[in-house]
Design a binder for these strands. Structure first.
Length: 300
DNA sequence: ATGCCTACCTGGGAGC
DNA sequence: TGCTCCCAGGTAGGCA
């Protein structure tokens, strides 16, 4: 569910509310939610108990809280994960609560950090922080993930941004597949991919190696812009499944131009928006503004 | 090495 | 009501 703007909204909330807090105790209610932690649920709890949360960082859709011992609490929200900050003495237990960190010494008064996850595709883990060539540290499971379009090292006009354009064009696949590949550029998911392609007037099945550099550059600009707009209003929510750390929804669903609008008129040309099967999901697109390449029926 | 596909889960809503 | 089917914002791992 959450893409970069939603994860960044959560990161920002954690930075405000739980950095500086100490983990007093850990309850793992569903072992599967820590399956990517080496050592299992007991080890997960042991490595967190007594540690202080010293920051809140993010790359793409991966989020982590560095600890006071050169490791970090890593979170991926998957399709339905939430991190909710509690401050009551006896906080409500959400039906999909998977892990609860009991906190003390929190400057904001937070008493618990809850990991709630309906579909359980998300996870928490404690992992070592590894240095990158550019000087920042990332948890080991994030080492293969590319930087994202809000990263200063990928800002427009930088060599980093040009390298992303080249990496996209080097792929031998459809442009949307490349945009969703987190090892090419991270943070873009199904919603913002479709939005960016609509803004850039590109069909999702266009071959990467037949796009001109300027077309790819405009697509990346569009993806960055739409994610910044979404972030400014707290992200995209269709329902209570995506919420910030206070349980509140964002407002960007109002700003979506194509995603979820099958049959409704394109806001540029009035043509009904189409929905096509794509990677076991859907691609939403305007057949006039985003003409399909030849042979797109074989690879919709 | 690179690209594609499926599995991993739970639940809401539509259709019968 | 209740069953079945379809759909959902993601990623890793295994296969060709």
């Amino acid at each position: 569910m959450p893409e970069l703007p939603e994860v960044e909204t959560v990161r920002d909330g954690l930075e405000r509310l739980v950095v500086g807090a100490r983990v007093r105790d850990v309850e793992v209610l569903r072992g599967y939610s820590v399956r990517r932690h080496d050592g299992g649920p007991e080890s997960f709890a042991d490595q967190l108990r007594g540690r202080t949360l010293t920051g809140a960082a993010r790359r793409g859709k991966f989020l982590w809280l560095p600890l006071d011992d050169a490791s970090a609490l890593l979170a991926h929200l998957g399709m339905s994960g939430q991190l909710l900050v509690r401050d009551g003495a006896d906080p409500w237990v959400h039906p999909h609560l998977r892990v609860r960190l009991h906190l003390d010494a929190s400057p904001s008064g937070a008493t618990a950090l809850d990991f709630v996850d309906q579909r359980t595709f998300g996870y928490l883990a404690v992992a070592d922080l590894l240095p990158t060539p550019d000087g920042d540290d990332v948890p080991a499971p994030v080492a293969h993930v590319a930087r994202d379009l809000l990263d200063p090292l990928l800002a427009p006009g930088t060599p980093g941004r040009a390298a992303v354009v080249a990496a996209v064009r080097r792929r031998r696949t459809g442009i949307k597949r490349a945009l969703l590949d987190q090892t090419v550029v991270s943070g873009v998911g199904n919603i913002y991919a479709d939005e960016a392609l609509w803004h850039a007037r590109l069909h999702h099945a266009r071959a990467t190696d037949r796009l001109r550099p300027v077309e790819v550059a405009r697509l990346l600009d569009a993806a960055e812009a739409v994610m910044r707009e979404a972030l400014a209003v707290g992200g995209t929510s269709f329902d209570a499944l995506y919420v910030n750390v206070n349980g509140e929804s964002g407002y960007f669903s109002r700003g979506l131009e194509v995603y979820g609008r099958e049959g409704e008129p394109c806001r540029r040309c009035g043509t009904p928006i189409r929905r096509s099967p794509f990677m076991n999901r859907s691609a939403y697109w305007c057949p006039v503004c985003q003409p399909a390449p030849r042979g797109a029926n074989a690879h919709p």
